[in-house]
Design a protein around this nucleic acid. Sequence first.
DNA 1: CTACTGCTAGACAACGTTGTCTCTCGATGT
DNA 2: ACATCGAGAGACAACGTTGTCTAGCAGTAG
Lengths: 309, 309
Amino acid sequence: MNDVARQAGVSLKTVSRVVNGETTVDPALAARVREAVASLGYRPNLGASLLRRADQRTGTIGLLLPDLVSPFSAALHRAIDAEVTRRGAQVLSGNVGHDPARERDLAETFARQHADGLIITPVAARQSHLAPDIPAVFVDRRARGWPADTVLATNHAGAKQAVEHLQRHGHRRIAYIGTMPGARRHGYRRAMAAAGLVKVERNDPEQALLEAPTALFTESRTVTVAAIRALQAAGMQRRVALVGFDDFPLADLLDPGITVVAQDPVAMGRAAARALFERIAGGTAEPRVISIPTTLIARGSGEVAIRGS
Amino acid sequence: MNDVARQAGVSLKTVSRVVNGETTVDPALAARVREAVASLGYRPNLGASLLRRADQRTGTIGLLLPDLVSPFSAALHRAIDAEVTRRGAQVLSGNVGHDPARERDLAETFARQHADGLIITPVAARQSHLAPDIPAVFVDRRARGWPADTVLATNHAGAKQAVEHLQRHGHRRIAYIGTMPGARRHGYRRAMAAAGLVKVERNDPEQALLEAPTALFTESRTVTVAAIRALQAAGMQRRVALVGFDDFPLADLLDPGITVVAQDPVAMGRAAARALFERIAGGTAEPRVISIPTTLIARGSGEVAIRGS
DNA sequence: CTACTGCTAGACAACGTTGTCTCTCGATGT
DNA sequence: ACATCGAGAGACAACGTTGTCTAGCAGTAG
């Protein structure tokens, strides 16, 4: 900035004024300054600026996601990005990859980079490591040890709806496939108990098929795909019904099309971004949970007829 | 830092030493300092540190991708992330979304945040806007106006291989579907010309099918999926052959499985990260192009028998 | 017992920027 | 003609940190 001032023949402070778009500068001087800025390739030092400045905003939002490859995360990212960009800020994202240490490191990095706020799908056991002075919003999972707005799909209701859908199609031996505790599993249990049916819960489709179920309900996209493979390998894709939690691309092009409980990542992302901007603006309301409804999309695999045994 | 020094009863500089892990501090003092740091929730100011510091490294790599939703980008991101993390640095990524202005803004942001380097899939017409003092590596596309290492798939050879594969299966009316100029289209033309066949190039599968081709070669995943839909809609998925450029999840579960020319995003990401670290370390070799081979994966759609017409 | 060495810890300046204060100069009102 | 005012521009300090220099002190050799 010194060099710019020298080349433009003005004081340091005047350069600062021009760079910051203050109006109390003679247009002729301002032009000279801008010219010097361009010719020297001057770039303001964010750190120094932040150091001195009162308003600490950087226009940057940090996004921490556990899995970049998942279409759900990707859609969420895109929705958040759209909403944040619409408000003139930027999203920088980091890949946590289910590693608690990386969640901590990345959050720390964003904090040091003076992100205005964070949107996080928590993977660590507790989130108490987060910087207390940076607003955060959680999405897709609940956090622990750090009260903040949380955006969730209606996991329990969605799972219940999926199982009831299978029950309506006559299924009574419905297996749950998945490895996580949580609302989806709980929704399955609730629906099965309500109908007086025996619960069958397994970690993977191969194990589940040993129990001769007539229908499968899968906890997540990964498991759904594993189940499709297992059914195709056994040639049973038209004999055993399948409903998966979480939609995915090409689900409609498979044969049969895969019936899913679709989340709404666009609405979730938008809600998360909005909640975050409210916090950044100084909102101090009690932390709340925002629920985004799921939708059952019937495509065939969830409606295969039950075999007379 | 002042507060920490006061609480620990030491000087400012000693706190600095402890925070930076210098060894010339009495262990007892260091322990007092660390305790004070923890109890006050002190977080060093990156900006101020960078301001004073000689070594300007931040351990941060910026990644600019055009499309988060594409499995190729996601895989690339993951591979880069793995390689960068392995070297103790972090990746922060931004979604450019095919918008040249956002490419510029995000690159600018990363520059201001003192990223050590950038990995970019260029979308803008020219990359001359990039900060000259920050090493950059391009991946998946060539840049213009900014010489740097570039990692590319063997697009020309891959396309040629795909078309030759179809020719070997007896196809003579092979349509190219895609909208971009470039090496893939050029590879198609080369292979067709070499076999003395008539080129049919169209923007979308519906138009291409009007020409009654016996085989389709699609330029990218998006187009491949559109072609699958079109073929299924017309019930022709077993009569018209299809080879797509770029692999995608579930390609093997479709019926027929989709034959593709697979890129190797893992190798590409790793190569890009390695090239970048060489530049960061001060490598000044002539910019080079690193080619990563593609592989044809036969799954059925590219091998459907040609109908005796 | 003195001079020297080695090591720890503090004082001070400087990094690049901006908030505040002050100065200059021309315009306005009486 | 004189006092007053406002707008534009510069001087200066301060933000939080670290590189450099120096002071203090204990241990060691002569």
